[in-house]
């Protein structure tokens, strides 16, 4: 009952929130919502101990797939978003064959190479990917009404509500997976793969499973993004974006479910409110670089370690 009340309050707060901020901040809210899904899905991948540099490109696979099936085949946009997620998961499944012959640093570099190859393929094949200019005029979500509220997707508030519902559902699924025996097995594969294997765990299958699920949700995030901004190109998913995702995850800490989400929210607020207000947007990479270095040097467990310190102290009292 208490949990239900907390979630009800959160939901009401999220419904009110966009009405309190400016138009450009409403847009930021939409991006933040989508980015939360990207970074939360990235964490699922890191559960098995592998760090990928291809996650953002996989997100792009979802974006391209959804943009193409809605634009070329006229598929209904919400279905297109699901197709985006499925395509990203499928590509990840194919990539898992070469990539999971590698581990650690080699996996990192291999995922980077695979991602770059995909990006170059988008660039090279103008048909259907639109080459370096990408795809323009991607179908927006069709407007609809649920009686009490009229969704008008030219308004960021409407898209925020829509994406928040989708992302909340995805986060709930990710959470269920992590707290299930499957999630426990992911942890086991990470911490002591030999013992896990001796307990009958097929390491390759579980690494692949984590990679495919994480990629599927990244694909949904990419599709959500594509139908909001309406235009995507290979540079929308380049390594710079990947570095931001990595920064959110590391600054937040990957030890808990909420860590990366916290990192994403805190850095977005810093970025949009502090930097934009101070007119320092040009220095964004500089600040991100400094934050990345400082947090790896002085806060290796991320922001979540601060939260944990706080909550532990409260319990002790």
């Amino acid at each position: 009952m208490r949990n239900f009340l907390i979630w009800a309050v959160v939901a009401v707060a999220l419904i009110i929130l966009p009405n309190l901020v400016s138009f450009s901040q409403q847009e930021v809210l939409v991006f933040l919502t989508i980015n939360i899904l990207v970074v939360a899905s990235y964490r699922l991948l890191t559960l098995t101990g592998e760090w990928s540099l291809g996650h953002v490109v996989i997100m792009g696979v979802g974006a391209y797939a959804s943009a193409l099936v809605t634009k070329e085949l006229g598929l209904w946009v919400p279905l297109g978003i699901l197709v985006g997620g499925a395509s990203a998961a499928f590509i990840a499944f194919l990539l898992s064959y070469p990539l999971f012959r590698m581990k650690g640093f080699y996996f990192l570099i291999g995922s980077f190479a695979a991602g770059e190859i995909i990006r170059l393929l988008w660039k090279r094949f103008r048909d259907p990917f639109g080459g370096a200019k990408g795809i323009k005029g991607i179908d927006p979500m069709p407007d609809f009404s649920i009686g009490i509220y009229q969704f008008d997707f030219f308004e960021p508030v409407s898209y925020f509500y829509f994406s928040a519902v989708v992302v909340a559902l995805c986060l709930w699924i990710l959470w269920r997976i992590e707290k299930s025996p499957v999630g426990l097995t992911f942890h086991a594969v990470h911490w002591q793969d030999k013992l896990a294997q001796a307990s009958g765990v097929n390491l390759r299958s579980y690494r692949t499973l984590a990679f495919v699920i994480a990629s599927g949700f990244a694909g949904i995030a990419g599709a959500l993004l594509a139908h909001y901004i309406g235009t995507i190109n290979p540079n929308s998913f380049d390594v710079e974006v990947m570095v931001f995702v990595l920064t959110w995850a590391i600054v937040g800490g990957t030890g808990t479910f909420y860590g990366p989400i916290l990192g994403c929210i805190v850095l977005t607020i810093l970025n949009e409110i502090v930097l934009r207000e101070l007119g320092l947007e040009q220095t964004r990479p500089l600040i991100y670089g400094l934050i990345l270095i400082l947090s790896i040097l002085f806060m290796p467990n991320g922001l979540e370690s601060i939260v944990q310190k706080f909550t532990r102290r409260k319990e002790a009292k």
Partner: peptide, 10 residues
């Protein structure tokens, strides 16, 4: 490795 990515950005 992560720190070198930070340095790259700077």
């Amino acid at each position: 490795l992560v720190a070198s990515i930070g340095f790259l950005l700077i």
